[in-house]
Design a binder for these strands. Sequence first.
DNA 1: ATCTCTTTCAAACGTTTGTTTGAATCATAC
DNA 2: GTATGATTCAAACAAACGTTTGAAAGAGAT
Lengths: 225, 225
Amino acid sequence: MSTESRTSQPETRDRILDAAERLFVEHGFEGTSMRMITGAANANLAAVNYHFGSKDALIQAVFRRRLTALNEARLAALDRLEAEAGGSPLKPSRIVEAFFGTALALAADTEHGGNLFMRLLSRTYNEPNAFVRQFLAEEYAEVMDRFLGALFRALPGVPRGEVMWRFHFMMGAMSFAIAGIESVHAMAGMPYEADDPSKLLPRLMSFLLGGLRAPLPEFGATDPD
Amino acid sequence: MSTESRTSQPETRDRILDAAERLFVEHGFEGTSMRMITGAANANLAAVNYHFGSKDALIQAVFRRRLTALNEARLAALDRLEAEAGGSPLKPSRIVEAFFGTALALAADTEHGGNLFMRLLSRTYNEPNAFVRQFLAEEYAEVMDRFLGALFRALPGVPRGEVMWRFHFMMGAMSFAIAGIESVHAMAGMPYEADDPSKLLPRLMSFLLGGLRAPLPEFGATDPD
DNA sequence: ATCTCTTTCAAACGTTTGTTTGAATCATAC
DNA sequence: GTATGATTCAAACAAACGTTTGAAAGAGAT
């Protein structure tokens, strides 16, 4: 049994990853049991521990499989921008698009489950689970460094602390953009007009760039009006 | 035992609510066991079921205690604005400030644990737990209705769908603003310069208003640049 | 056919989970 | 004091949890 089983199912390892990804989105990490995963993957209960070692290791594998590719695509997009610019400073809008556009492209991929993963990832930024946070921080270190550096150079007049905060705010907006396509309707009783997912990126980009370019806050005054 | 126990501890019911709130922030709902809660609250294991009925009911009680007050404060702030305006349309910035400023004021309250709760609330928007989502949707229905309606009237030229999406994006930015005061540093290796929490509101407001006022997206063009 | 390595399987492991029980303890009123 | 109602307590409950085990089954090479 090298690539395909007796039936034409994918490898057990991949079936487990797919099932786990979907179930983590629906029920969270702690709300998803090994039996749910192996059941949905048509695998034996012991298969997770055999292929991955533990549940925590499986969680990491689910993330690594997609996150590595996503962040490499982000870095490649930034590389391309910097190569085109040839030393001259980048436009902030291009940097933002390289980071968030790449993410939303994956979130729009319903074919290979990228949308599921992005919903999982969005939620996990606020995950209390200690080792997941640690893992995400490591996985994001290089990308954050590169993109924040690019933004610092693109916005030389803006204090770095403000840039970082605004980048953080943008991450929040993106998180809700991805995770909340249905929650926004549920909360507001919206008619749910079957939003075109392709409209999400322009919508989000307008908002993000408006926020990024906004006048800097004035901390002193209490009522600037 | 009417208000105080033999020692001068608060009522068991309140000790449980406080302990649960803190532990939910640190470990999430499923990651927090009844034994952790009652242990931290110096109460017997059966106390939660006696006072609240079940763990799920306790979760709801934790939310209701703070959320009702928060949303009432939001509605009161909006009432005040509308009374001052006396029929004329409100400034969008005031509406946004009434909604998000009220939340950040609670998030800045380290004295009575409001900051803990707001971190919990921010995370819970993306909670997969079905009954928690349902509960939040109900608890937010009126506030959403009022504030979205006010924004619709304040921005008559903007399609309602766009306003709703931007409000949703704003919620995401606020969520990260509150939940991520440390995660933004962890991810970017920021020097953690002991940010003044009082600066968070002006920071966030600038970003939100910039995003809200941004030019509307153009869906047709692929490269508006 | 036999050996070797990988994968699958059913069963059980010891913990931990949320909840329930019935007696003990408390405060208060009669 | 004694009865009443509310609260606390130690103990136990069945169910579910992640993990481990040792045997069975499969695949490929010699």
